[in-house]
Design a protein around this nucleic acid. Structure first.
Lengths: 218, 218
DNA sequence: AATAATTTTTAGTCACGTCTAAATTTATAT
DNA sequence: ATATAAATTTAGACGTGACTAAAAATTATT
């Protein structure tokens, strides 16, 4: 049985290896978990002994099949709980992360699957992140960052990359939510910002924001 | 912020002080938590320093107002989650204890209150145990043990005292559930057992079982 | 290729929550 | 009231997961 700390490490490694390439560095994990590289080294030994990661000293780590399966399962739990919190308990999408961070460690396969059924087997969480099914498979999407939407094309917001509350609140202010229709009117080269339309209303967003919004073409 | 271990100790002290008198002994706590008396002593010092219990060496402990408030809140969370698990996720009443034992440690006042509202502010959990409200007040009941129901009187099952799965499964077998109508036909003095009617069907239960079923008179 | 800078690991320490074994206090019995 | 039994606490240890400081390995620079 894994401790919460171990689970958090697995999740961090999964997240980092999805974002970047294969092998994840000790420092990257330390940054992700707000801990120190030395603590990470210690934990890497333990996870390696449990065959959850491949670990070669000084060479970074990556998940084994077993480790990846467990990490994906934790992500599944996290996202299912977020759906529950937003759809049934009326939390806002920027309020659920910390609570789901706790709920994801509850141990009961039956609970997860019954929750999944209760929620009607959702494919995406309130932030648009894909929810793996019981077999650990992610639903596939063909989303691109808003920042890469060609001028004059229209798209629909399907997900956000960051889930920091401050970012989500800012999106609320901009009236950007999952499902919103968006269009690029013009790219402002000098500051890399975008003149856009959100649900047909003119607006303006920075490159940083645009990169963190995923859309599908319409 | 309390650790899970600290919360479990508070809960154990509350449970024991409700059952027996005021002051709770070190050994009783150790038994309740399947730990050792020495571990309990250590923890009593810590809880005492945090003003959650009154602790005099060798004299047992009892909860302070502050400690009692926290303990009651944990019980509230435990029982609300049990309602959720049984009423919405289709768990059986004998399956929810261990999961609720984990869920009760999730920290978010807002979550508890939103869950409470979602469940329609239930007063009793699936085992008939009273659920304290946000202010920490328990609903009052005038339940008596089945074992004290006078012969020929009829009653309605409102709660069970134990929530061990094996006991609950046995009650299922006897067709005894919350709300069942019961009547004592005869007391068998030689083995302290009871001839009873459960929903008008004749049955037979032992004193041990009868003591653990709470009923209200009809 | 040698040195400097960075990254990573090791060594030693600490708080938490547990344990066993020994000491101490309280309760019981003669 | 004194000896014995039972309950409780203390002392010392351990595993977990964190930290700091120092050492070692890797990567970057000239």
């Amino acid at each position: 049985m894994l401790s919460q700390a171990e689970e958090n490490y697995l999740k961090a490694i999964l997240k980092l290896s999805q974002k970047n390439g294969k092998s994840v560095s000790t420092n990257a994990i330390a940054d992700e978990l707000y801990t120190k590289a030395s603590s990470v080294s210690d934990m890497m030994k333990k996870l390696s002994e449990k065959s959850l990661i491949h670990y070669v000293k000084y060479q970074g780590v990556y998940l084994t099949e077993k480790g990846k399966g467990l990490a994906v399962h934790i992500v599944r739990k996290h996202r299912l709980w977020e759906v529950f919190l937003v759809n049934h308990l009326n939390f806002k999408w920027d309020e659920v992360h910390d609570i789901a961070e706790q709920l994801e460690h509850i141990k009961s396969l039956e609970l997860v699957n019954k929750l999944d059924a209760f929620l009607n087997f959702p494919s995406f969480d309130p932030h648009g992140d894909p929810i793996p099914n019981e077999a650990g498979e992610f639903p596939k999407t063909s989303a691109i960052p808003f920042s890469e939407l060609p001028v004059k094309s229209r798209g629909k917001v399907v997900a956000v990359v960051m889930d920091e509350p401050s970012f989500l609140k800012y999106l609320d202010k901009l009236n950007i939510s999952i499902g919103a229709q968006v269009e690029v009117i013009e790219v402002n080269e000098f500051d890399d910002s975008f003149d856009v339309k959100i649900n047909d209303i003119q607006s303006h967003i920075s490159l940083d924001v645009a990169k963190n919004i995923l859309i599908s073409l319409l």
